[in-house]
């Protein structure tokens, strides 16, 4: 596939910020003016990713992992320190204006609308800026309104909109010019359950029906489970994982349980994917074999084939559980690593 047909390609992106180092106290402040010492802070360290048309990829990671910084490099807001980005074949930083027509972006924390005016005025202005033909504009606005119920509040000044209302207007604003790529940085922050569902439905439609390539960051794992085909997990600016939800499960040792009620007493044939972890009369609980954590689906099939089962229920780690385990482990590893280096320095 050539680079034009893949909407988003980033290769070995890095970003290092230079920050002025200021020692404490008055003299520290004075010294910082005359002889600033710079600290180099690597924030993104070799992230590669791609997003295909009609695909929604979730960029996950803890606070400060470098998700927003990555999105800023992909949208052309800041230049990468090293590495390359191609968006619909363009370098988003070099060809910023041209690239702007191909992308839409929503930053949940910040609005791109005119704060003091009704949201609709911003939409009209953006229509003119992006030169959207009047017919298309009307058609798209009607569609957005159908799905996001914008007309209930788009005559309100943006400053008076609730967070969830404002982000919905921002979503409409980002998609008004029908970009091929959509970047969403924590779009559902502060939304209630119903609105979240509405927005998810809207995004699913954008991806499945309109073939948009979407890159999403969020801390809401439910959202990821509902929307994302693929996950990219970064921590401390480094890419830790890339793949589907199922692969993430097996990679990070996610566990499952199968509870069955046996209809007949039988012996216990050895299974390839599961082992008994508890039993109480006719109720038996299976878990993965420690040496190979098989996907739940395989194990379930095997169990049902081998046993006379009258009732089955399953239990699986949620993505949230997996992330919690993973992040907890990563934090512990970091702590022991820095402890180790301190020991070495002594």
């Amino acid at each position: 596939m050539n680079s034009k047909s893949v909407p988003v390609i980033a290769e070995r992106l890095t970003k290092t910020f230079r920050v002025a180092h200021r020692s404490a106290g008055f003299m520290g402040g004075v010294r910082a003016i005359f002889r600033p010492t710079w600290e180099y802070k690597p924030v993104v360290r070799g992230v590669s990713l791609s997003v295909q048309p009609g695909e929604l990829v979730a960029l996950l990671g803890p606070n400060g992992a470098g998700k927003s910084t990555t999105i800023k490099m992909l949208t052309g807001i800041v230049a990468p320190t090293t590495g390359s980005v191609r968006l619909c074949g363009l370098d988003p930083h070099r060809n910023r204006e041209e690239n702007a027509r191909n992308i839409g972006a929503v930053f949940g924390q910040r609005s791109q609308l005119w704060w003091d005016l009704p949201a609709r005025d911003s939409l009209v202005m953006l229509r003119d800026i992006f030169e959207v033909p009047a017919g298309e504009y009307r058609e798209r606005l009607r569609q957005f309104d159908d799905m996001l119920e914008l007309s209930r509040f788009w005559d309100t000044r943006v400053r008076h909109l609730s967070l969830g209302q404002r982000v919905r207007c921002d979503l409409a604003a980002a998609l008004l010019h029908d970009p091929a790529v959509l970047f969403l940085d924590e779009p559902t922050i502060g939304m209630d359950v119903l609105v979240k569902e509405q927005v998810r439905e809207f995004l699913r439609h954008q991806v499945a029906e309109d073939g948009k390539a979407v890159l999403l960051t969020t801390h809401d794992m439910k959202e990821v489970e509902h929307l994302a085909e693929r996950i990219i997990l970064i921590n401390d600016g480094e890419e830790m994982f890339e793949g589907g939800v199922a692969a993430l499960r097996s990679r990070f040792g996610a566990t499952w349980k199968v509870h069955v009620t046996l209809s007949d007493a039988v012996g216990h044939p050895r299974l390839a994917h599961a082992r008994i972890v508890a039993r109480e009369g006719a109720r038996v609980t299976f878990g993965p074999r420690p040496e190979a954590s098989a996907p739940l689906g395989h194990a379930l099939k095997e169990i049902i084939n081998a046993y006379p089962v009258s009732d089955v229920s399953t239990e699986e780690d949620s993505l949230e559980d997996i992330m919690r385990t993973y992040l907890g482990g990563a934090a512990a590893a970091r702590q022991s690593a820095s402890g180790g280096s301190r020991m070495a320095a002594r």
Binding site: K72, T75, G76, I77, R96, E97, E98, A100, R101, I103, A105, F107, R110, S111, Q112, L126, I129, F130
Partner: peptide
């Protein structure tokens, strides 16, 4: 106010 970043997302100088 973060407005510059919104400017950077529009196809205008």
């Amino acid at each position: 106010e973060g407005k510059l970043e919104a400017f950077l997302l529009r196809p205008l100088p």
